[in-house]
Write a protein that binds this DNA or RNA. Structure first.
Length: 423
RNA sequence: GGAGAGGUGCCUGAGUGGCCGAAAGGAACAGUUUGCUAAACUGUCGUACGCCCAAAAGUGUACCGGGGGUUCGAAUCCCCCCCUCUCCGCCA
């Protein structure tokens, strides 16, 4: 959610910046400004009337104490009208505030000035490509066939237990998952991230805080009995730890990481996108989250991006980094880099990470602030990135490392898997 | 799931109708003192939205778990909800 004070002071700037996201903010901003005017004048009247009433109440008390009963009763009678006015003004205030909130949540975050214009993923800017796709022979097969061949992932039984998109990993498949999780968590810790194991169900306030609610309600699994959502990413619980907090400036930056399963309904997906491990309803992911002062959040974003690139390098996967164009960015993000690995048998780039700076968009929703000495509290910047999402990493590892003997495990991972080949 | 206790500021904790945005202590911060550490003393020490304003200062209102009610006036009385703790039950 954009800050109201910012919108009020710079309406034109907000409109022009949101144009980069192909979002026409003018009508909403006009309404916001109009409602805000009404709200302020209503508040002025309300506060003034309340002040009158408070003053009279105090006098009534004093009159009673002085035994001036009649005068007190007289003054009492005069409060009736004020109280009526107050009731009406309070209703007006509440209405304005609800309308204002309803409009404000419609506005996406303003993109950073470096965000390229564009509408589709094709217009994302490739800022870096690294590694080379392996030369696979004629017999190369996609990961879902490798999974079957070596009996390490069972999609069909997942369908039986739950439904499509809930695979079973077994044997070396399960061990590979566990190895990757440990590898990623160890790396994150070495990079200074504090490991968190959060709940994987969250309440509505948490969903609102990071921006999943209200607009992406249909993307999350919902437990109706307890009104809880299954997390789509560890970002939600790990960032919401700091909801409604005023951190001391000395406790920043916050660097957290965590492994969780992630649950996504992925309504509307189909075709080759959902084949094999390409898109699942449940998957494992290690997430990194940072909370920063505004002045250094973009340095942090670069640092996170380079950290993730380092992981891909260690896994010896060919990858590229995209700077997302306005049209492909998420609602809440100000700047996003996607990391894609090349999955050689499918001959496709697969997104395995997305790292974003949300600036104050989430912290304004969450009321996540920090404070330096006696200064006013200031909204912090929040950032997060996948480091990494497992399924597509597994897909690329299987496909790219297949040879006549089986699937070779990259060197860095062998201490974790404790086996060198899947065969 | 059943029974009871309780939710007050960063923390502990007082406050049962006006003198309460809230005692006291602790923590923290600033200063004085001090060879250093410690201690002592003094001061500061919530948030939001308005108004005023270049800003600071000032000022109005609201907030004592959340929502409603009674009253001229509510942290305090009444109703509903939520949460936490303890005991019992169940259980990895």
């Amino acid at each position: 959610m954009l800050e109201l004070a910012y919108i009020r002071r710079n309406p034109e700037e907000v409109i022009s910046r949101l144009a980069t996201k192909n979002f026409d903010a003018k009508p909403i901003i006009d309404e916001i400004l109009a409602i805000d005017d009404k709200r302020r004048s209503a508040q002025k009247s309300l506060d003034d009337t309340l002040a009158q009433l408070n003053k009279a109440s105090k006098e009534i008390g004093e009159l009673y104490k002085a035994g001036k009963r009649e005068e007190a009763d007289q003054l009492k009678a005069s409060t009736t009208q004020w109280k009526q006015d107050i009731t009406a003004l309070e209703a007006e205030m509440k209405k304005n505030e609800i309308e204002l909130q309803a409009k404000a949540v419609l506005l996406p975050n303003t993109p950073h000035s470096s965000v390229p214009k564009g509408k589709t993923p094709e217009e994302n800017e490739i800022i870096h490509t690294e590694g080379t796709a392996p030369e696979l022979g004629e017999n190369a097969i996609p990961h879902w066939e490798l999974a079957k061949k070596y009996d390490i992932i069972d999609f069909e039984t997942g369908v039986k237990l739950t439904g499509a998109g809930f695979p079973i990993y077994k044997g070396k498949g399960a061990r590979l998952q566990r190895a990757l999780i440990n590898f990623f968590l160890d790396k994150a810790r070495d990079a200074g991230y504090l490991e968190i194991e959060p709940p994987i169900l969250i309440n509505e306030d948490s969903g609102f805080g990071t921006g999943q609610l209200p607009d992406k309600e249909g993307q999350m699994y919902f437990v109706n009995e307890d009104k809880l959502y299954l997390i789509p990413t560890a970002e939600v619980p790990i960032t919401n730890i700091y909801r409604d907090m005023i951190l001391d400036a000395s406790s920043l930056p916050v660097k957290n990481c965590g492994y969780t399963p992630c649950f996504r309904r992925e309504a509307g997906s189909y075709g080759k996108d959902v084949r094999g491990l390409n898109r699942l309803h449940q998957f494992d992911k290690v997430e990194i989250v940072q909370i920063r002062i505004p002045e250094d959040s973009y340095v942090a974003l670069e640092e996170m991006r380079e950290y993730i690139a380092g992981l891909l390098r260690e896994l010896q996967l060919p990858f590229r980094i995209l700077k997302l164009c306005g049209g492909d960015m998420s609602f809440a993000s100000a700047l996003t880099f996607d990391m894609e690995v090349f999955s050689a048998a499918q001959k496709r780039w697969l997104e395995v990470s997305s790292v974003s700076n949300f600036e104050t968009f989430q912290s304004n929703r969450m009321k996540l602030r920090y404070k330096k000495d006696k200064d006013k509290p200031v909204l912090a910047h929040t950032l997060n990135g996948s480091a990494l999402a497992l399924p597509r990493i597994v897909a690329a590892l299987l496909e790219n490392n297949q040879d006549s003997k089986g699937v070779r495990i990259p060197e860095m991972l062998v201490p974790y898997t404790k086996f060198e080949y899947i065969n």
